[in-house]
């Protein structure tokens, strides 16, 4: 037996390519280290307690149970406050209304990305018009002005350094939109629209996964995010 597979395993978080990622990673490692410390301490106390000789003396509940509990409560409270600030910073406020919007649509077993075009407005969609075979996988209504310049892509192309606001929905069942490198995950639930926003800060190609079982093709429901320079994004948009 060799240990190579274990050593070759990726032990740490994947590359962080989003602006809010650094704070999240810091919080993650902090939480993991604190918890590893508690795990080790508790086991050490248990082992030492089992090895030492028998003590019959009356023990103080206050010193041995209440005091450590208070300390740990303070520790958990401190972690909770930090965590709340982090959550508030990324989620309490929506994106700036002026930022670029992209619609993310999950369907068994593909992700579609719709860009609103020059008018920055998405056209209406109708379920009866959904025809993936005929180039209209989202059922965009040809009668709606706003939809004329909408562009549906199988790849999420984003300009670097610009905030993006994703509107996430699903055509059929619940899917899980997830890009580990962007540190975002949000379920796509049919009948509802959810927004998440982030700023990509590293050029590159990253996998979009589905993280909610959505049927027999769930395992292959993947797409890509491509973060490109602003000039290249402009070129791509015009194509």
């Amino acid at each position: 037996m060799t240990l190579t597979p274990i050593l070759a395993m990726r032990w740490w978080l994947p590359q962080d390519a989003a602006l809010h990622g650094a704070a999240l990673d810091r919080e993650m490692y902090l939480a993991l280290w604190i918890m590893t410390g508690l795990l080790a301490t508790a086991h050490l106390v248990m082992l030492v307690g089992l090895c030492i000789g028998r003590r019959e003396a009356k023990r103080s509940i206050w010193r041995l149970e209440v005091a450590p509990l208070l300390l740990l409560t303070i520790l958990f409270g401190w972690m909770t406050i930090r965590a709340e600030r982090l959550w508030a910073a990324t989620r309490y406020a929506g994106a700036d209304p002026a930022v670029m919007q992209v619609e993310v649509v999950g369907a068994q077993f593909v992700w579609y990305f719709r860009y609103p075009g020059a008018d920055a407005r998405f056209g209406k969609t109708k379920p009866e018009l959904v025809q993936p075979g005929e180039g209209n996988p989202l059922g965009i209504d040809p009668g709606d002005e706003d939809g004329r310049d909408d562009r549906v892509s199988s790849e999420l192309v984003l300009p670097i350094g610009r905030e993006v606001d994703l509107r996430i929905r699903s055509l059929d069942v619940i899917h899980g939109f997830s890009v580990p490198e962007m540190r975002v995950k949000q379920n796509a639930i049919p009948g509802q629209v959810f927004h998440i926003h982030f700023t990509p800060v590293h050029e590159g190609r990253y996998a979009v996964l589905c993280t909610q079982v959505c049927g027999l093709g769930h395992y292959r429901m993947q797409a890509a995010v491509r973060v490109v320079s602003i000039a290249e994004f402009a070129r791509w948009s015009e194509r």
Binding site: M28, A31, L32, M35, H43, L86, W87, P180, R183, K185
Partner: peptide, 30 residues
């Protein structure tokens, strides 16, 4: 029972990590 205590601690310490919404949004369903 000693095994129970050890495993309960090991599983338990991952709880306060997952309880944080921002961290759970990364770890959810993994």
């Amino acid at each position: 029972s000693l095994g129970f205590v050890s495993l309960f601690i090991a599983g338990g310490v991952t709880g306060p990590v997952l309880a944080q919404p921002a961290l759970d949004a990364y770890l959810h369903n993994t």
